[in-house]
Nucleic acid binder design. Structure first.
Lengths: 320, 320
DNA sequence: CGCTGTCATGCAACCGTTTGCACGTCAAGA
DNA sequence: TCTTGACGTGCAAACGGTTGCATGACAGCG
């Protein structure tokens, strides 16, 4: 039995007589043989592995994205290596460098890396970005602006005239987009906006920010994301401020809002869809370079709109 | 410049004159060259990649474990492929089969796979188990029994005499351990225990189980894990039952308990430590087979104790 | 000044698949 | 029966690194 036949059993079984395939398969099963991925990769140039780098896998935003991406990748016959950049642009870039040699392409979700570094990375690796708008690099963008505008409108409709926005990570593209949308909508509705930044963009950061928010004399707040929002909720509760009776609050992402008490009004981001779309873009890139030696002509972008989800944290304005 | 020199620049730079290393490195940087992982793997037999398979990456228990494991692996020069088994033993086993050809070894966290399948997998792959007690297979076990016993003692001390346990996944080893510990402690303290199983072991399952729990006429409940516990908390709140005033509740894992309202009394599992320990065991295995053709003599087990964390969901028994 | 040992580098075989090509077999048609 | 073509399988050369061994340069020593 020649190596070629064994190889064909696994890669191109239609070239072989069914009986042969059967024979080889059964022996392989008995021996516990599986083709060596490295050797296949070396010969074919396709490693069958993609990278997915996120700033913090423990942040509730990413697991659903990872899961969806991974499922989509698997359907395309690809395994997924997860990288955690630790909310640090430098580590993130280093991660990509390491992964480069063992993957066919890399998805960078919510990258914290600076633009020039990102660009040079893109020159040597197949890259897809999520929530980062860099012309020329394939990317999927969750457009939370409409949802954010709806939140402001909702608050305005409930009589609020002074609100606060609690910022997310400084290096986050999404944060910039959301802030801009809120500023815009506040202007439109004649609302006075104050912004602040939590110590850290996590639960405890939000909790600590509650005191600061209350001191501002606003009657409502918008949090960068659900995690921060949940923290605020806890911080407000600790101080005896009842939501939505005494204070209104909205957030973004819809990661944990359904499980808070009270359930939070937020902006429902299509996180899973973003993961799938990113894999699709990457798979396109991979195919593109197989056939023609093709630069995937054109600037490939997928925009996914995010809409408000009304739950129970917005009430009528009541001066304190 | 011969290939050997380039190779040595990256793998064994100490064999070369520093000036040579410098020269090669700078040229490599300029060209964006990195050694091809597959070729290295093929020649050396070490792929530099390990697999980590979990039942559900979106379950709050796993991201911290993944993160810790990944960090530990990176220190050992290993990348990590994450696999999601979808809470399904069959898919999980298939996942391991696929990963086998592209990794040096696999960590199976909270496997749902049946024992015989697990055993046969272990024969053909380097395997490390987390929270599954299979003699002969290297494993790390989080021993939540002491913590669970403490919870029962705490409830007993607060005057509760009728409590309920809300089960987790049927195929979960941890669930069996926890249930046994609770049964034992209840006997000891003369507490009447009723058990039930949520429709699904997630937030909504817990929420729905709240009604059922209240019908049992118990004054306190222990949930399999924090996710279920948080769901119960929400379900109770919906029905106007105040925790801990009207009803007491404890959970396990300490994944989201600190962020619920009120913060939940739970059992703090050393999740991160478990992830690190699993990687250590796997790395030991890998080294073991390098040197001697070594069966890592002895049954390698790491037991990590989990202790109760008191927060705010247990109060004095008050008949309803 | 020649011998010896050390150190840095080159040579070439090999890791386990894939794949273009050649070969052998067999059935159908002339 | 011979030719022809289709089909299944084997041969051998790559893929891009690694590594034992050989080689050459050079310094120290007698």
């Amino acid at each position: 039995m020649s190596p070629s036949t064994v190889s064909r059993t696994f890669s191109h079984p239609h070239l072989l007589r069914p009986s042969t395939v059967e024979r080889v398969s059964s022996v392989a099963a008995e021996l516990g043989y599986v083709p060596d991925g490295s050797a296949q990769a070396l010969k074919t140039g396709r490693r069958g592995v993609i990278g997915l780098v996120v700033p913090d896998i423990a942040n509730a935003f990413f697991p659903p994205l990872i899961r969806a991406a991974q499922t989509a990748a698997e359907k395309a016959g690809l395994s997924t290596i997860i990288g955690d950049g630790n909310e640090d642009g430098t580590k993130e870039a280093a991660m990509v460098g390491r992964l480069r040699g063992q993957t066919d392409g890399i998805i960078l979700a919510s990258p914290r890396t600076r633009e020039p570094v990102l660009r040079s990375l893109h020159e040597v690796t197949r890259l897809v970005l999520v929530n980062r708008d860099l012309a020329g690099v394939p990317r999927v963008l969750i457009d939370s602006a409409p949802g954010m505008r709806s939140c402001v409108r909702l608050l305005a409709g409930a009589g609020h005239t002074r609100i606060a926005y609690v910022n997310g990570p400084a290096a986050s593209w999404s944060n910039g987009e959301r802030l801009a949308a809120i500023e815009d909508a506040c202007r439109e509705h004649g609302i006075a906006l104050t912004t602040l930044r939590a110590r850290l963009p996590d639960h405890d950061g939000g909790r600590a920010a509650a005191a600061e928010v209350l001191e501002l004399g606003v009657t409502a707040a918008i949090a960068f994301d659900d995690v921060l929002g949940q923290g605020l909720l806890a911080g407000l509760a600790e101080r005896g401020v009842r939501v939505p009776h005494d204070f209104s609050l909205t957030a973004c992402d819809d990661t944990v809002s359904a499980t808070t008490y009270p359930p939070m009004t937020t902006v429902g981001c299509p996180i899973r869809e973003a993961g799938v779309a990113a894999v699709e873009l990457l798979v396109e890139s991979l195919r593109g370079s197989d056939d023609g030696d093709g630069n995937g002509d054109g600037d490939r972008v997928r925009r996914l709109p995010a809409e408000m989800v009304v739950r129970g944290t917005v009430g009528r304005c009541r001066e304190r």
